[in-house]
Design a protein around this nucleic acid. Structure first.
Length: 424
DNA sequence: AGATCCGTTGACGGA
DNA sequence: ATCCGTCAACGGATC
């Protein structure tokens, strides 16, 4: 794997490809990944049953020993046997595998609408090569199949994409000192962060997702989008690093590279730039689950609300709240922000950050031409900003001399890395 | 250099 | 239900 990442980077001219398309191009030059040394079948694993008492057999401490609450049921029983069974179940439906298109899967179905193999991949229960080559054999039998980025194969290539970039980017899980990350002066608001973290934002769609995350350790990718956008550029304007840490804590599939990469993506800090596309915490979930079954499952306090109000229960008249047995502001929190106002304000902040970044980039370019003149320009610009009286909190931090992403700092090195060992 | 292309998954309204 | 065009508030990569 390490070898592969460095080969990709080498084939791309010494730096990691920063777009998925470019990444795919490099892969097409390098050819297919190796097969696993032996293709293990589900039957093989049926011959290797788990001992009746694993604790006794392996001396593994129980959850209770570790002081953790024992949950009677988990949707994610561990081990390769379960992983291969899950793989097998999904791959039985050739049509589903071949026509898979990620954006069309549903974030709030009661059972995962995707393979949900990520915990098994990230914990090493399932070999990604096994997955890849099983998939190839299904593709080989079908007349036509979907393609990256939306296809099932595309999903696992996203994983490799983020591994590649992460392996060659300093400070990949941080904003500061991260040359591909937009530098933003996020708000420091621990109380707001805590409301988001503990599913008390007052937006049922957001709180249900955060509840599923905390209870079960897995949420659909689009659900991750919803809560990530809400925390960062959409509503709360809190750093993606904070969200990343919470995901790291609760996600069974938490992965160094993918977690950071996707948080940068969603916060429009890197990879993704159409920051005007903001998820609405009311409408986004309602689109695919108008009855709010998902909300009723994870937020039982709201389960008796009529569908009309369940995504925005604060709009329900008092008598509706009474008969639903849930008073907003008492039994369930009021929305912590006005989404329309917050998202508009944040849109403005984001535009400001990018305008400033451009200015800084121009100045940096000037420095190479004529340092004296550029210095003067910089002074003038700073004066101008002072006169404008920009609100300090909303001003982006200056990139310390490396605003132009093309001119990377000299400390930029290709660490070819033990990362992939950490995460697979 | 400047135009052009295009990107995994928005929201909305209409067919 | 699902598909599609529009909106227009984008930026980077590419030629």
């Amino acid at each position: 794997m390490c070898l592969l990442l460095s080969r990709i980077i080498q084939a791309n001219g010494g730096s990691p490809p920063l777009t998925y398309k470019k990444f795919l191009h490099v892969l097409s030059v390098l050819g297919e990944p190796e097969k696993p040394c032996r293709d293990v079948s589900a039957e093989d694993f049926l011959r290797c049953p788990t001992p009746a008492d694993p604790e006794l057999a392996y001396g593994v401490p129980s959850l209770a020993d570790l002081g953790l609450e024992v949950q009677s049921e988990t949707p994610w029983p561990g081990g390769e046997t379960h992983a291969l069974q899950r793989l097998h179940t999904h791959f039985q439906s050739q049509g589903w595998v071949s026509s898979f298109s990620k954006p069309r899967t549903v974030p709030n179905s009661l059972l995962p609408s995707t393979t949900a193999l990520s915990p098994y991949l990230s914990l090493g229960c399932l070999s990604v090569r096994t997955f890849y080559h099983r998939l190839s054999s299904v593709y080989a039998q079908s007349k036509n199949h979907s393609l990256p980025p939306v296809s099932l194969q595309g999903q696992v290539l996203w994983r490799e994409f983020f591994y590649t970039v992460a392996s060659a980017t300093p400070n990949f899980t941080k904003m500061e000192g991260n040359p591909i990350c937009l530098q933003i002066h996020w708000y420091h608001e621990p109380e707001s962060l805590e409301k988001w973290r503990t599913a008390r934002t007052g937006f049922p769609w957001i709180d249900a997702i955060m509840t599923q995350l905390r209870q079960e350790g897995w949420i659909h990718h689009l659900a991750r989008h919803a809560v990530a956008c809400f925390l960062t550029r959409g509503d709360l304007w809190i750093s993606w690093e904070e969200g990343m840490k919470v995901f790291e804590e609760f996600l069974l599939d938490a992965d160094y590279s993918l977690n950071a990469g996707n948080w940068m993506w969603l916060s429009a800090s890197a990879f993704f730039h159409k920051y005007t596309r903001i998820f609405c915490p009311v409408r986004f979930g309602r689109r695919t689950d108008p009855q709010g079954q998902y909300l009723r499952k994870y937020l039982p306090v709201l389960k008796n609300f009529p569908s009309q109000y369940i995504y925005e229960p604060w709009k329900a008249p008092k008598d509706v709240q009474l008969s639903a047995g849930c008073i907003i502001g008492k039994d369930y929190p009021c929305p912590m922000v006005c989404h329309t106002e917050a998202s508009q304000r944040n849109l403005g902040l984001m535009r400001q950050v990018r305008t400033e970044q451009q200015k800084t980039a121009e100045l940096t370019r000037d420095v190479t031409d004529d340092p004296m003149e550029a210095g003067l320009k910089r002074e003038l610009q700073e004066e101008e900003e002072l006169l404008e009286g920009a609100e300090p909190r909303s001003r982006s931090k200056r990139l310390s001399g490396s605003a132009d992403h093309k001119s990377r700092p000299s400390s930029w090195t290709l660490e070819t890395v033990r990362l992939s060992e950490d995460v697979t």
